[in-house]
């Protein structure tokens, strides 16, 4: 059995990321796969998706354009056999170009952008494709340890049609110097970290408009224990 698909995920407890210490289960998870293999997640209709929901450079404008580097982030959502998954809900949220989140509890001293919320969503098309326009997020400091900074990243939530096709993750950018200092990124096994890094795609770049990145999302059964 192919081992690699089982060990790409971080452990529940990863002590360098301090919040996991009191928030991760201490008992083994109970395997119930055979009882749940038909469990579905809901399907979502296009009516739930607003026209500008996948364009974060436009969906919160008040008096102008958001500040920062405009980018396009696109990819295909597929299963482990490479089959594209249509109608999958992809939701993203992120900091603005100054590294500031809109969230009300956020206290980082960086400016909010009146024209940028940082949230978007889309349903994948028949070929499993999604695409967002957004602003490249900035790095931001957090309280995990002294002088802790998160690498630039975009949060992704993905809702497929089966229970095992639910994923929440973060997309990073190539060559970020903060990778080696970030316990959230480092919680992923070394060999799998590349799977979280979007590829720069010169050929998808829109001249005079936006740089392009590719981030494919592969969904599958989550079990950490290879059996069956």
């Amino acid at each position: 059995m192919d081992q690699t698909s089982f060990d790409v995920h971080p452990p529940h407890l990863y002590a360098p990321y301090k919040s996991t210490i009191l928030r991760s289960p201490t008992r083994p998870l109970m395997p119930v796969r055979e009882l749940l293999k038909d469990l579905t997640l809901p399907a979502f209709g296009e009516s739930l998706i607003g026209k500008l929901d996948n364009d974060l450079t436009k969906n919160a404008r008040k008096n102008g354009e958001p500040i920062g580097e405009r980018i396009k982030v696109s990819g295909v959502v597929m299963d482990e056999y490479g089959k594209p998954l249509a109608g999958v809900l992809v939701e993203i949220w992120q900091a603005n170009s100054a590294g500031r989140y809109v969230h009300k509890e956020e206290i980082h001293d960086a400016p909010l952008d009146p024209n940028f919320l940082g949230a978007g969503r889309i349903l994948t098309d028949r070929e499993g494709r999604y695409s967002f326009y957004t602003i490249k997020p900035g790095a931001y400091p957090w309280g995990n340890h002294f002088n802790a900074w998160r690498p630039n990243h975009i949060h992704f939530s993905v809702v497929g049609h089966q229970f095992e096709h639910r994923l929440v993750t973060q997309m990073y950018f190539q060559g970020d110097p903060l990778f080696e200092y970030d316990p959230i990124f480092q919680s992923v096994p070394v060999h799998a970290r590349e799977l979280l890094i979007a590829k720069f795609r010169m050929d998808w770049t829109e001249p005079e408009f936006a740089l392009a990145y590719e981030f494919n999302i592969i969904l599958g059964r989550r079990s950490s224990t290879p059996f069956e």
């Binding site: 192919d2 698909s5 939701e91 949220w93 949230a119």
Partner: peptide, 20 residues
């Protein structure tokens, strides 16, 4: 055919609310 490797999971973090 070898299976593709899944996209690893990451935390939802503290700031999901304005998106989700």
């Amino acid at each position: 055919m070898d299976k593709l490797r899944q996209t690893p999971s990451q935390t939802v973090g503290p700031f999901f609310a304005y998106g989700l």
